[in-house]
Write a protein that binds this DNA or RNA. Structure first.
Lengths: 194, 194
DNA sequence: CTCGTTATGTACCTATCGGTCCATAATTGC
DNA sequence: GCAATTATGGACCGATAGGTACATAACGAG
């Protein structure tokens, strides 16, 4: 039909992912993305429409390749095991030697430019959606094993979400994995074993 | 001696504080600061040297005027009361109707530009210093009332710091104060009363 | 071999970034 | 009233931001 692409889209997305992860949406300059991917401006805009277009493709990939543990976590049979799997998952993710520090989404969602405001809001909405799914799973599984006494499913979900954000922020600040593990242990002390 | 200033430094710092708080260091453009303070570029540079110079003056003010509850918290006599006062303090701070959402320092410390990297690191260092003070106070006061069983002072301090960051991130995302309060309650369920 | 189509490379665009320069204004000490 | 000193207003700066225009290059279909 026409001239074929000279780049591999998977490789490009992986390279762009690293850049956005390290810098967040705003601080990731177009020139950074071009350098990392090897594309020219023309190719990038032809293929992805805009910086934001590329970003959403990257987020999709991030969730698929790096946030997959969330599904596994939600499939666990008790509140404690759900929470544990979730918190251990983020710990490994955010402090992996191969990955940039911190969380791609949080790194973006905490910046304050008016330009990126719609992006921020969409990320926040996604987070809230996951919180609801978490709450619902806590509700369902609390029949099998109880939540900590005095905590509703909703409380528990908000608590875990806060901790996840906190761990991501800490990781970005260079807090070592072992410390994160101890935080997770501490957080779950009062969660009944199945 | 010479021509007097036409602006009130306190008012200027307060105005700049709001801007930096809302946007973080990087996203706060010079034009935003000039608009909010009413200064001209010349006056700002004469008085504060640079954007970064102004920023540190603002941080100083932020800690003095808005983070004062930290000192009161550390003065509490038991681990639980220290933690409670701290967490309630950040809850009120970050979700106050009069204040911008989230935390000035975190909003800045999570952005990823290379330009702001030194600033980021200095903020992170300050955070670590406070963590150590918190740990020491937990250690001292754990004689009066115990920490949750299985938690060392160091664990407890890291746990509380993570939660503080998490609450700040949540607040920036628009999570309401009441939710934050429930998170705090949940986090402290296993902390022995004095 | 040519035509339609899509990809690429380069030059260019406007807006904005933080920051500097310098002439001018306002004050106090003399 | 004059000199010294400091503050202010505004023009100006190079660098960079994201994005566009357009000419050229590489392919498949006929």
């Amino acid at each position: 039909m026409a001239r074929p692409r000279e780049f591999d889209e998977d490789e490009v997305l992986d390279a762009a992912l690293r850049v956005f992860w390290e810098k967040g949406y705003e601080s990731a300059a177009l020139s950074d993305l071009l350098g990392a991917t090897g594309l020219t401006k023309s190719s990038l805009y032809k293929a992805f429409g805009s910086k934001e277009g590329l970003f959403w493709r990257v987020v999709e990939r991030y969730q698929r390749d790096f946030l997959d543990f969330r599904h596994e976590a939600l499939a666990e049979p008790t509140p404690r095991r759900i929470a544990a799997r979730l918190l251990e998952g983020v710990t490994e993710l955010h402090s992996g030697r191969r990955n940039p520090a911190g969380c791609l989404e949080l790194n973006t969602a905490l910046s304050g430019s008016t330009e990126a405001e719609p992006i921020r809001q969409r990320l926040v909405r996604g987070r809230e959606l996951f919180r609801q799914r978490l709450r619902d799973r806590f509700e369902e599984t609390s029949a099998t094993a109880p939540l900590p006494p005095g905590m509703t499913s909703d409380d528990a979900a908000s608590f875990i979400m806060s901790l996840i954000q906190g761990l991501a922020a800490q990781a970005k600040g260079g807090v070592p994995r072992e410390t994160a593990r101890r935080v997770v242990r501490a957080a779950l002390l009062s969660w009944p074993e199945s």
